[in-house]
Nucleic acid binder design. Sequence first.
DNA 1: AATATAAGGTGTATTTTTTACACTAAGCAA
DNA 2: TTGCTTAGTGTAAAAAATACACCTTATATT
Lengths: 231, 231
Amino acid sequence: MENLPAHFDSVFTVDCIIFGFDEGELKILLIERNEEPFKGWFALPGYFVEHTEAIENAAKRILYESTGLKDIHMEQFYTFGALGRHPHGRVITVAYYALIRLTGQKEVKPITNFAKQAVWMNVKDIPQLAFDHSRIFRKGFEKIRNKISYQPIAFELLPEKFTLTQLQNLYEVILNKKLDKRNFRKKMLSYDILKELDEKQKGVSYRAAKLYKFDKRKYAKNFQKELSFGK
Amino acid sequence: MENLPAHFDSVFTVDCIIFGFDEGELKILLIERNEEPFKGWFALPGYFVEHTEAIENAAKRILYESTGLKDIHMEQFYTFGALGRHPHGRVITVAYYALIRLTGQKEVKPITNFAKQAVWMNVKDIPQLAFDHSRIFRKGFEKIRNKISYQPIAFELLPEKFTLTQLQNLYEVILNKKLDKRNFRKKMLSYDILKELDEKQKGVSYRAAKLYKFDKRKYAKNFQKELSFGK
DNA sequence: AATATAAGGTGTATTTTTTACACTAAGCAA
DNA sequence: TTGCTTAGTGTAAAAAATACACCTTATATT
C-alpha cells in the first residue's frame, strides 16, 4: 500500500445483529465468549475485517459463519469508534443488522472462534453485553423500529407464506405496541403489495387463516411514485 | 496494541459534507485537490484518522480545519469500505455531515493540506468528485432530506433569527419542491417550537417580516410525547 | 351429533390531518 | 401618490387515521 502512511492504520471489525422472528418473539443471535476479554459474556457475532475484503463482504462472512445462510438482507447502520471501547486499544467497528427467516430453519451453526455457544435470545431479555455491544444493539433495534414503518423489511423475517395475524404480531413486537386488527389489515392491504394465495394455514386447532406472500413486483410498481413529487 | 493482530490493520479516513445555506441556496464546501491522485479534482474535505483519536473527534477536527468552526451539529451517516474505492489500496471512510450557519460568517479558512482552494458550491451544481465522493455526497444529501421532515435540523443552517419565508425556502431547497405558503406556516407554527420575536427584518426594500427563533425548550417539551405510545 | 373453544374476518362513523386556493396589508422607493 | 414587492391570513374539501363489536369458521371435546 504505497503512499498511504502506515501509522494511520487502525484495527477494525464488523459486528452483526442477526434478527429472527419465531413463535411470536423477536430474537437476536448472541454468542457466549470463550476468551478474554469478557470471557463468559454474551456478545454480538463479529470479527476482524481483512485487509483485502470489502466491509460488506466481512458482514456477509460473519453471517454465514454464524448461521450458514447466504443472500440475506443486511444493512449497515452505524460505525463505532470511540476511544476505550475495546480494552486492548482503539478498535473501529462497523455494525450491520441482518433479517433472517427463522421459521422452517432447523439449527443455527454456532461459531467456533471465540465462542462457547450461540443462542437465540428474545430482544426483551437481552442481558448486559460485552464491550459496547449493548449500545450497538439498542441503536440497531431502534433502526429497524423506525424502518419498518416505511420500508417492507418485515417480510424478510417471516416465512414466504404468512398470515395477516403473523404479520401484525411482528409489527407489534417491533413497535412494542398493540395494533387494531381491522385498521392494520385495511391499511396493509391498501398498500397493495401482498399477494393473496389460494391456500390456508395448516396444523392449527382453530379456523385456519389465509396465506399471503409479499409481492415485490407490486411493491416496486406502487412505490415508484413515492419518489416523484406532489405539490 | 497487544493482543490485536496487526495484519488486520486498515487505513481509514473521515470525510465531511459541510452544508451551508446562503442567499436561498444550499451549498457544500469542496476542496480542490493539489496532489495525486485526482489532482485538480474537487473532493469532500477529509483526512486520516489518528490511532489515538475517536472518529467523532477526527470529524470535528476536519470541520475546524476547513471552516474554523467548533461546536457544530455533525452526524455520522455511513461508512464506505468497498475494495477499489481508493487507487492506492483499501481505505475505509467514515462519512459525516455538518450543518453550519453561513449567513454572517465572513470567510472560510481554506485547508492547506492537499488543497489548492476551498469553495462553497451549490448542491445543484456539484461536478463529478474525486474518489467515490459523488456517491458519498448523494447519500449524505439524501440523509438530510429525509431527516428534515422529522427533526429540527433546518435551524442549524439558518441564522439565529430568521423569517418564516427563509425557513420555507430552506425546506424547499432541501426537499426540492415548492411548498404552499399558508400550509407551511400553519403547520410549522402548530408544532409550537418557534418563538416569535418583537423584532423585524432589516435592510430589505419591501415590507419587513417578523423574526423567529427556534425554541429548544418548547421543542423538548412538545416532542417528549412523541416517544410515548398511543393506541 | 352437539357443543365449546379459539382465532379469522369484516364495516362504519368520527376525528384529525392534509390539501387547495386568492386576496388585502405593509413598507419602501421612485 | 403611486407602484412594487413581499408579508400575512382563513376556509372548504378531501384524505387518512382512529375507535369500536360481532358473526364466521375450523377444530377439539363430550
